[in-house]
């Protein structure tokens, strides 16, 4: 009986480790989510509100109304009268601690009230212009275009070239195959930061400096992609390839009609990674691209925040634009991404 009781108690009760665990998870989630959420909320505020302190949580804006007899819209204020009555009034002007207001329902009459008795009315308001303005007034449309171009072209080329190399390294016997594979594998650990200076000089030599193709070509041959696809292709039985040979398929057709379709799952994972890499890429485009009409979104955004460092309403809106595609990709494909990372240890 006692045993039975203690067992149920033990199962029902959260012990200290459980509590600590959940505390950690909640805290961690908050630490991760708050800065992002804060940037998102702020990106929808008006310029005035972005720059006001202390900040408001929800994007708001002042309420304005048209009052008969006044050319301009007047802002609406809440007037708490000394007798406790509350009334909405429109502010005409304010001088020192005295404000001239007008009763909205009765516009002929103006009143003089102390400013301490009135507070401005605010409405929830999303400032979508923060998103549209930079696209129209600054070059962000071009930046996005360039990024999409680089992302799409580089991803397609990555899939094609890496799968071809993986095909050769997994399904053919030729002299030097292992040496080539080891050579590719050894670059897995070679970071761009070590070779960025000469790599740029190569780009200059190829006349690809300040050119989107310079960004694309240098990143297309990835050891990660070759390695990942090769591992996958090793699981495709050689019989299939020989059957296709007997079926009069040329080697190129075997690649195109048999091997590529069969690699679809691995190609999908590589495509996801490739899109994320290219969309987020910073250091290499920073080195290669020099004129604003060639900037990618990341470079453009960085340049913009350096140049217009006070225009936070625009900076934040464009930051959100930059994080949205990856976020959507992640929300839809999180399972494949986390498993792909855990499985291959690449990022």
């Amino acid at each position: 009986m006692l045993k039975f009781l203690t067992r149920t108690r033990h199962h029902g009760k959260m012990d200290i480790t459980d509590i600590l665990s959940w505390l950690w998870l909640t805290l961690g989630t908050a630490v991760i989510a708050i800065p992002i959420a804060w940037a998102m909320l702020s990106s929808l505020k008006t310029e005035a509100e972005v720059n006001s302190f202390p900040p408001s949580l929800i994007p708001q804006s002042t309420v304005n109304t048209q009052v008969e007899g006044y050319d301009k819209d007047l802002s609406v204020w809440k007037w708490t009268q000394p007798n406790g009555e509350i009334k909405n009034v429109a502010l005409v002007r304010r001088i020192g601690i005295k404000a001239t207001v007008v009763d909205i329902d009765n516009p002929e009459k103006t009143l003089q009230v102390p400013t301490s008795e009135i507070t401005q009315l605010k409405d929830v308001n999303f400032q979508w212009q923060n998103y549209t303005d930079p696209l129209e007034r600054f070059d962000f449309f071009t930046y996005i275009n360039n990024t999409v171009f680089v992302t799409v072209v580089a991803t397609i080329l990555t899939l094609l070239l890496n799968s071809m190399a993986a095909f050769a390294l997994s399904k053919y016997k030729f002299r030097g195959k292992n040496a080539i594979f080891m050579l590719i594998l050894s670059t897995l650990m070679l970071p761009l930061s070590v070779i960025m200076v000469p790599a740029f000089i190569v780009i200059v030599g190829l006349n690809l400096a300040d050119n989107l193709w310079g960004v694309i070509f240098a990143t297309v041959a990835t050891p990660t992609g070759v390695f990942m696809l090769r591992q996958y292709m090793l699981t495709i039985p050689d019989d299939l390839i020989e059957a296709a040979r007997v079926d009069a398929a040329s080697e190129f057709r075997i690649y195109w009609r048999i091997v590529l379709p069969l690699c679809a799952p691995a190609l999908a994972v590589l495509a996801i990674f490739s899109v994320i890499w290219r969309w987020n890429d910073f250091l290499w485009p920073l080195i290669v691209l020099s004129s604003p009409e060639n900037y990618t979104l990341q470079i453009g955004l960085n340049a913009f925040q350096g140049q217009f460092s006070v225009e936070w309403h625009y900076i934040l809106a464009m930051t959100v634009i930059a994080l949205i595609p990856v976020t959507i990709v992640f929300l839809v494909l999180q399972k494949y991404i986390t498993e792909g990372v855990a499985g291959s240890g690449v990022k």
Binding site: I36, A39, N280, Q298, L301, T319, F330, K347
Partner: peptide, 11 residues
Amino acid sequence: VLLSPVVVGLI
């Protein structure tokens, strides 16, 4: 992890 360095820096 999936965010770009620029986005993280700015946030």
